[in-house]
């Protein structure tokens, strides 16, 4: 029971956390905490097979699937705090409290009697005993779940599949389109500029500097720009003094005066760096 009394508060707190954290990733992490704790409880409850399955399948596979989808959707997509449905949150909490209260109170009244224990059932080993049941009494349900899994897999493929409605543009067509765009709107013909490549470090999230010293927004991925995780090239430029100091070189005075101001470019901060 020690394990229970240690883990139960953790699990309840983690579960409550799911309700309150704003980022989905954090919710997934908290759910992982609940699930692993549950696995431990399964072990305590003489269910070693489920302990393994809970960790391998549930936490390892299903929860990872959640994280994959989160990555696709956007890791930091977060809920707004404002409730859109009038009275929904209040009612949910009231009904939830009533439900939980009733359930706990009702269960508290019960006395389940002495625990029989699984020593006898697990005599020849828990996995063997489960296998015996699964392939005798529950064999039909077991086979049916295989059909269910196949259906689910096909369903997921069907849902994720996107029909190509227009023919794929070949190299020639792409080139012709580029020339056309250039003729019509003056769009640059060549490839986009590479992101920042500096003497001290290279990074895809740091824009390249144009000849006049301003950062080129085209050089960083627009997803990074949309997330606001683009680093500031001028910020590094600021640190050149420090580097020079370390190297024992003094910069020419007029170049310092020509450096672009600090706020130009993106809104990168040191906090971001730490995160």
């Amino acid at each position: 029971m020690t394990a229970f009394w240690v883990l139960a508060p953790v699990m309840v707190l983690a579960a409550l956390g799911i309700l309150f954290v704003r980022k989905a990733v954090h919710a997934a992490m908290l759910l992982a905490v609940v699930m692993i704790s549950l696995a431990v409880l399964y072990a305590v409850l003489d269910a070693p097979f489920l302990f393994a399955v809970q960790i391998i399948v549930y936490t390892g596979a299903i929860l990872m699937l959640f994280l994959f989808v989160l990555m696709l959707v956007g890791v930091d997509a977060s809920d707004s705090v404002v409730e859109t449905i009038r009275g929904q949150r209040l009612l949910a909490i009231v009904v939830g409290l009533l439900f939980g209260g009733t359930l706990v109170a009702g269960l508290g009244q019960l006395s389940l009697g002495t625990v029989v224990g699984l020593d006898e059932a697990n005599d020849g080993g828990n996995i063997q005993a489960l296998a015996n049941l699964l392939f005798s009494k529950y064999v039909f349900a077991f086979e049916t779940t295989s059909a269910l899994l196949i259906t689910a897999a096909i369903g997921a493929m069907v849902l994720a599949h996107r029909e190509r409605l227009t023919p794929k543009a070949g190299q020639a067509a792409t080139a012709a389109q580029r020339m056309k765009d250039y003729a019509e709107s003056g769009k640059h013909l060549g490839p986009l500029p590479a992101p920042g490549v500096y003497a001290r470090h290279n990074a895809v999230d740091t824009p390249a500097l144009l000849p006049d010293g301003t950062p080129s927004e085209l050089s960083v991925n627009r997803v990074l720009a949309a997330r606001g995780t683009v680093r500031s090239a001028p910020a590094y430029a600021e640190k050149v003094d420090e580097v020079e100091r370390q190297l024992g070189i003094s910069p020419p005075v007029e170049e310092v005066a020509q450096r672009p101001s600090r706020n130009q470019g993106s809104t990168a901060t040191d906090e971001e760096e730490q995160a």
């Binding site: 449905i85 929904q88 949910a92 009904v95 939830g96 439900f99 009733t102």
Partner: peptide
């Protein structure tokens, strides 16, 4: 709103 319907179901369960 699917959450509204879920609330009804939850109320029913209660």
């Amino acid at each position: 709103f699917v959450r509204s319907y879920a609330l009804s179901v939850f109320g029913g369960a209660l």
